[in-house]
Amino acid sequence: MARRHRILAPIIGLLLLLAGCGDDAGSATDQRAGGDSPAGTAAPAGPGLDAVKSYRSLRTPDKVPEPAAISIPAIDIDGKLTKTGLNKDRTLEVPEFGDMSWFAKGSAPGEPGPAAILGHVDTKSGPDVFYRLREMSAGDTITVTAKGGKKFVFVVDRIEQHAKKKFPTEKVWLPTAKPELRLITCGGEFDRSRDSYRDNIIVFASLR
């Protein structure tokens, strides 16, 4: 109980100071005058020092396994993931038609950083896996299942459409200290002279 009583004088001092009675009350330190712990001496090292001496800081990072599958109930997507990387010109490799791919040179979904999953909006003959990506809205959920079964649920923050010529590189790829996810496909007008859509549709999501 001794330690309980020692608190009261300094705290009352503070209360008086907070109440604007500082001049009359004297300093909080003064309120402790006569206490049994004179200034100039910290508490001596007690038995707790053994714990300090044996302490070693952590050296093993958390490892998030590679993603295996993705599920987006709002647009009826539920399928496995493949892996893609970078082309020689540093543009993104794209998945085969019908596939959804994780950009494996970037963060894994669930670990800090912007993880990205790509899919085609259409083939030459009709809709493909990310055809309905444009229908998503803020608050929709995306579940990525990692190898081993751990699930990461992301919540959509916003959907943006940008001309490929003005792709928001920093917005999509700059590191983040928290786990984030981007889903990317094509959108906008189809430029038949280039055989390419003019825009990209990007879904930005954060780990729930």
């Binding site: 543009t91 040179k105 085609h120 493909d128 038949r192 390419s196 859509y197």
Partner: peptide
């Protein structure tokens, strides 16, 4: 990564 992503064939 550089630039936009070619994820559509126009079908």
């Amino acid at each position: 990564p550089s630039g936009g992503v070619e994820t559509g064939a126009g079908g």
